[in-house]
Write a protein that binds this DNA or RNA. Structure first.
Lengths: 135, 135
DNA sequence: CTACGAGTTTGAGCGCACTCTAAGTCAAGA
DNA sequence: TCTTGACTTAGAGTGCGCTCAAACTCGTAG
């Protein structure tokens, strides 16, 4: 698989894939006769996992630590386990914070909505086509 | 309230508060005799709300739009409502994505954990003090 | 044969959200 | 009176994660 296809499948740019290789997040890719990167499916799986880490807000430097441990072999499994557990805890805390923010947003939105509804009510001496839509 | 106290209470730095004022996220603060910023409680409330927007990933340029509408008065209430609803939808989608990532993390962690447990089992011909701790 | 599109490299540039520096002012306590 | 520490300004610097530029090389379709 060429870099373009991998980029399309992983939904990131080829630029980003080269950048990841440069910083060590991806191992140096095998090259074809013309020096072009050639990937197999396992790279896609790894990129997808990196995408999960990224979505959950893991900084690249931590992904690098994880990638280095993976490259170092099974002796680092406990360390990798612990890193993921610590990360999961942070993500859970973040989700909880988001949910609390969502509650605040809901309150605020409800406040605006009831204001708007009342304005619409105040409107009811106007002919229909001039009233504000209720949404 | 001086900037230092506001900073402590809002849990952001005084630098950041001045920066927010500079870019228009906070209105220009009243000054005391010596030209120093003097705040009342409403600024703290506004900063706390901005913190919610920030936690939920709203970029500063959108906060600026919201702040500008607020400053423009009640005529912008529907627009503000709509902005918050759109934001809430994005946040909900993000929470869903995070939860899906958490499921992947859980699977990965369980995998590592069972590996580690099995290694501990494989250990059981060793004298106790050489076994890997089970945690 | 040639044109095209996809790839290669190194290194520079960008947008975001701060974060800090330098040089100065001011009020209150020892 | 002196010192301390919190404040003031404009502007420069930082860290992150890309993103793009320039100049180049290939392989293949027409």
């Amino acid at each position: 698989m060429k870099i373009g296809e991998l980029a399309r499948r992983a939904e990131i740019s080829a630029h980003t894939i080269r950048y990841y290789e440069r910083i060590g997040l991806l191992p140096r890719a095998d090259r074809d006769g013309g020096g072009r990167r050639d990937y197999d499916a396992s790279t896609l799986v790894w990129l997808e996992f990196l995408g999960r880490l990224k979505t959950t807000g893991m900084p690249i430097r931590d992904m690098l630590r994880y990638a280095a441990m993976r490259a170092a072999g099974p002796a680092t499994e406990r360390e990798r386990h612990d890193l993921l557990v610590a990360h999961r805890d942070r993500v859970r805390a973040h989700v909880a914070a988001l949910q609390s923010c969502l509650a605040v947003l809901d309150t605020k939105i409800t406040g605006y909505a009831s204001n708007l509804t009342n304005e619409a009510k105040d409107d009811d001496t106007l002919p229909n086509q001039l009233r504000k839509p209720l949404r």
